[in-house]
Lab assay of single mutants.
Amino acid sequence: MATKAVCVLKGDGPVQGIINFEQKESNGPVKVWGSIKGLTEGLHGFHVHEFGDNTAGCTSAGPHFNPLSRKHGGPKDEERHVGDLGNVTADKDGVADVSIEDSVISLSGDHCIIGRTLVVHEKADDLGKGGNEESTKTGNAGSRLACGVIGIAQ
Rank of each mutant, 00 (worst) to 15 (best):
T3L: 12
K4R: 09
V6C: 03
C7K: 01
P14V: 14
G17Q: 02
I19S: 03
I19A: 06
I19K: 03
N20R: 09
F21G: 05
F21Y: 04
F21C: 03
K24L: 14
K24S: 08
E25N: 10
S26I: 14
S26A: 09
N27F: 04
V30E: 03
S35T: 15
K37S: 15
G38Y: 01
L39A: 01
E41M: 15
G42N: 02
G45V: 03
G45A: 13
F46S: 01
H49V: 02
H49R: 07
D53C: 15
N54Q: 10
T55H: 04
T55Q: 02
T55Y: 04
A56V: 10
C58M: 07
T59S: 15
T59H: 10
S60L: 11
F65Q: 07
N66G: 09
N66F: 03
P67L: 00
L68T: 10
R70Y: 11
K71E: 09
G73I: 01
K76D: 13
H81D: 07
G83Y: 15
D84V: 05
G86N: 00
N87A: 06
N87L: 07
V88A: 06
K92T: 09
V95F: 12
V95D: 11
A96G: 04
D97G: 10
V98G: 00
I100T: 11
I100L: 11
E101H: 03
E101M: 11
I105E: 02
S106I: 02
L107S: 02
S108T: 12
S108I: 13
G109R: 04
H111R: 11
C112P: 07
G115E: 00
T117K: 10
L118Q: 04
L118Y: 01
V119Y: 02
V120H: 00
V120W: 01
H121K: 14
E122Y: 07
A124H: 12
A124S: 13
L127I: 05
G130E: 14
G131T: 06
G131L: 14
G131R: 12
N132C: 12
N132P: 08
S135A: 04
G139F: 01
N140D: 14
G142P: 00
S143M: 08
R144I: 15
L145D: 10
I150N: 02
